[in-house]
Design a protein around this nucleic acid. Structure first.
Lengths: 200, 200
DNA sequence: GTCTATAGCAAGATAGAC
DNA sequence: GTCTATCTTGCTATAGAC
């Protein structure tokens, strides 16, 4: 009997942290639109229909908010890339799938991924130390994909990775909706590099 | 007689705008180290051994300071690339020279060029409208260099330019002094694309 | 949990003495 | 030209009522 009452109480308890997701969405949007330094806690709170003071119930500081946005952004883009890679069955197809997924999330996938790529606060050393490992862990997937490619002798896998990954991330600056799709961009870049494939 | 006196006075007059260059240097350094939004006018002034109020004699606003830094940065990197290109005598050599010069200025050339590449204030529309044409004019040089390459059929010059130029600019994020030199990076990237050269 | 109110501070910019 | 002093505004973060 007591156990039943206790269970009912647990089930009926209001969910905690109910509005944390909206707050995080609003933060991601403000950070993307204005940059981390220029975004204000008031604006972020307003984006979640909240007053500035209230958000400190969920996040202790603006830096914590940025870290949480990065974590969520990395989680999303990692999942998208992993899912896409799993469907491909050879090294070049896996790389193409990963590039397409990376670009899709970065260019059409909302605010989180764009913040991850663009916002590394240059001062605030403590924040950098939290965020850089998140990025490195994500990028390690790509290093593996490049290592697995069968290439002609003399091709530098490291420079190939830096070339491609840099170009993908820089695409934020020139991409426009209505032009090439992410999959087309990834395909066009890879076509330029296919001559490096080893003759089988 | 009067003319002579007048000439002497003109010649003896103190040079105007004497400390504008130091101020610009200090601004470039602060913008690079902290980002435009996070840099403060007080810090910039202190970097030129000046008080904050004094710098408004030279620049009417923080935005004007950023525009002036961009203009000087574009001037420097354009001159470096033009000089390097002039010494090369075929399309691939010209592109390699341009890439090396671009990277040298960007990676080892001080604060101005890094600000040009990295700092486009996301809000402040009026500032963007001043800065984007500066960048576009610079980038047009590279478009010409790619158009001049003799390539095998089917290679997209536009995507090749986006691939290479993006990778060059992104190199700021991974470049470390003591690793590859700018010329080596440019050479390694181009080696990966040489299979696209048309058979002569 | 969310609010109002505000502490405490730093920012960009201006005024006027020198 | 450069200074000091200050205006005005906006910021992050906190306190305490509800």
């Amino acid at each position: 009997m007591m156990a039943i009452v206790s269970d009912i109480k647990t089930e009926a308890a209001p969910r905690r942290d109910n509005r944390r997701p909206q707050l995080l969405d609003a933060a991601a949007r403000s950070f993307r639109e204005q940059g981390y330094a220029a975004a204000s806690m008031r604006d972020i709170a307003a984006g979640a229909d909240m007053k500035a003071g209230s958000m400190y119930y969920y996040f202790a500081s603006k830096a914590d908010l940025l870290i949480a946005v990065h974590e969520e952004g990395i989680r999303r883009i990692s999942a998208a890339v992993d899912d896409a890679v799993a469907l491909a069955d050879n090294p070049w197809a896996r790389l193409h799938a990963a590039m397409s997924a990376h670009l899709s999330v970065l260019l059409d996938g909302g605010d989180y991924a764009q913040v991850v790529i663009r916002e590394l606060p240059l001062d605030e050393q403590a924040v950098r130390e939290r965020l850089v490992p998140l990025r490195d862990e994500y990028e390690a997937r790509f290093a593996q994909l490049f290592d697995d490619l069968p290439l002609i002798d003399g091709a530098s896998r490291r420079h190939l990775r830096l070339l491609v990954f840099g170009a993908l991330n820089w695409s934020q600056t020139w991409y426009r909706v209505g032009g090439d799709t992410p999959a087309e961009i990834a395909g066009a870049f890879l076509d330029l590099l296919k001559p490096l494939a080893a003759k089988s």
